[in-house]
Amino acid sequence: MSGNGNAAATAEENSPKMRVIRVGTRKSQLARIQTDSVVATLKASYPGLQFEIIAMSTTGDKILDTALSKIGEKSLFTKELEHALEKNEVDLVVHSLKDLPTVLPPGFTIGAICKRENPHDAVVFHPKFVGKTLETLPEKSVVGTSSLRRAAQLQRKFPHLEFRSIRGNLNTRLRKLDEQQEFSAIILATAGLQRMGWHNRVGQILHPEECMYAVGQGALGVEVRAKDQDILDLVGVLHDPETLLRCIAERAFLRHLEGGCSVPVAVHTAMKDGQLYLTGGVWSLDGSDSIQETMQATIHVPAQHEDGPEDDPQLVGITARNIPRGPQLAAQNLGISLANLLLSKGAKNILDVARQLNDAH
């Protein structure tokens, strides 16, 4: 009898209710805020589980004197976190989706994509230029951005401005803007500013005609071990179906173009009346040469937790077992079709030249 009692006690200790789920994140304040929001949602869904947040620095956090596009290494903000995932030191990792490459290392998958916040870019102005827009900034004003995508589009749109690289986390960039006289304004992701509670610093939100956004911008991705079915089931509740389908289309477009950090590629997606609209573009580094096109596809946005595919093969690095396969494939095909259209119009040449120029500098 006593033996059975011990077995029952052991089973209770090993039951999922007692389990601590370890969540990996970057150390920056924004990353911690984003991770806290994901953990809060998981806690609400699984009140019996405990969650421990483990923060670590990544290569991208450490190399702050070089433009991201020049470092010449993929997975700048993800490699150390993936290493911890691989060694079973954490069970899942919360990322900004735009930091996750469209091809993940073997053994990993994006197990959830959370509801997207505003994906557009924002302009934050130096205190002396508050009330201005990019259009009304004085001639030769210097605007800071760490992104080739932003610089290429904005140089084309605002030729009277000069664009220079600015690195560091959000706090560091804002301090550089406010305390030094080098920059009249800087460009940042609206979602990051909003998550930090800095709505009052948003001086201008850039519309798609001015600057399309990065693939996955404004959404959070939760990376897990691809074979860890328990954790895949656990994080599945975080999937937002519309965000998922938009981001599958965007990531398929980028992957098929073979774009990345070192080339200016941008997108804009919208879901309306059962249609998914995808606009994508590529630019030369100075913005003088560009190709942009829009395509659409009829896609039914499923309700969360309709029964999805059981075999769960990944699409552009994403596993969404609780979302039907048909809409996911339709979104992926839309991204591939748009990429093929741009490639047929000469996108590869623009991107190759951009890559060579970026590598040469």
Score class of each variant (00 low, 15 high):
281 G>I: 01
204 Q>N: 01
153 Q>T: 05
161 L>F: 07
321 R>S: 11
74 K>L: 06
239 H>C: 10
287 G>K: 01
246 R>T: 08
233 D>C: 11
347 A>G: 01
123 V>F: 01
231 I>T: 08
292 Q>M: 13
322 N>C: 15
136 T>K: 13
265 V>M: 04
272 K>V: 15
80 E>W: 07
236 G>E: 00
291 I>T: 09
291 I>K: 13
249 A>L: 05
122 A>G: 10
350 I>Y: 15
138 P>S: 11
69 S>N: 12
109 T>G: 00
49 L>R: 08
93 V>N: 08
227 K>G: 04
310 E>T: 03
113 I>D: 04
312 D>R: 12
253 F>W: 04
164 R>P: 07
168 G>Y: 02
118 N>F: 09
173 R>G: 02
308 G>Q: 15
180 Q>N: 15
212 M>L: 12
189 A>I: 01
290 S>H: 00
117 E>V: 13
205 I>E: 14
335 G>Q: 04
221 G>R: 01
308 G>C: 11
56 M>A: 12
340 N>V: 04
82 E>M: 03
38 V>I: 15
222 V>Y: 02
184 S>G: 09
54 I>L: 09
256 H>R: 12
244 L>V: 09
41 T>G: 08
289 D>Y: 11
196 M>V: 11
195 R>I: 12
164 R>N: 11
186 I>A: 11
176 K>Q: 14
232 L>C: 11
251 R>Y: 03
219 A>Y: 04
180 Q>W: 06
100 L>V: 08
143 V>I: 13
200 N>D: 14
239 H>A: 13
315 L>K: 07
263 V>A: 15
316 V>E: 05
207 H>S: 12
150 R>S: 03
130 V>A: 12
65 D>I: 08
72 G>C: 05
51 F>T: 13
248 I>E: 01
170 L>R: 02
322 N>V: 11
169 N>C: 05
62 K>D: 15
152 A>M: 10
297 A>Q: 04
273 D>S: 04
156 R>L: 09
154 L>Q: 06
304 Q>W: 06
141 S>K: 08
65 D>E: 15
62 K>F: 07
45 S>G: 08
305 H>S: 06
277 Y>W: 03
213 Y>T: 02
136 T>M: 14
216 G>R: 02
157 K>N: 15
272 K>R: 10
282 V>K: 04
107 G>W: 15
262 S>T: 00
66 T>F: 09
266 A>T: 07
198 W>G: 08
89 E>V: 11
258 E>L: 03
85 L>D: 02
191 A>Y: 04
170 L>E: 07
146 S>R: 11
75 S>Y: 00
251 R>D: 02
39 V>G: 07
92 L>F: 10
299 I>G: 01
53 I>H: 01
46 Y>V: 14
335 G>S: 02
64 L>A: 15
332 Q>H: 15
269 T>L: 03
221 G>E: 00
67 A>G: 09
65 D>Y: 10
117 E>P: 00
89 E>W: 08
241 P>L: 01
120 H>I: 06
290 S>K: 07
193 L>R: 02
214 A>T: 08
289 D>A: 13
93 V>D: 04
154 L>I: 05
46 Y>N: 14
87 K>R: 13
66 T>Q: 06
239 H>W: 00
278 L>K: 02
297 A>D: 07
112 A>W: 01
139 E>D: 13
148 L>E: 05
80 E>M: 10
338 L>A: 15
228 D>R: 13
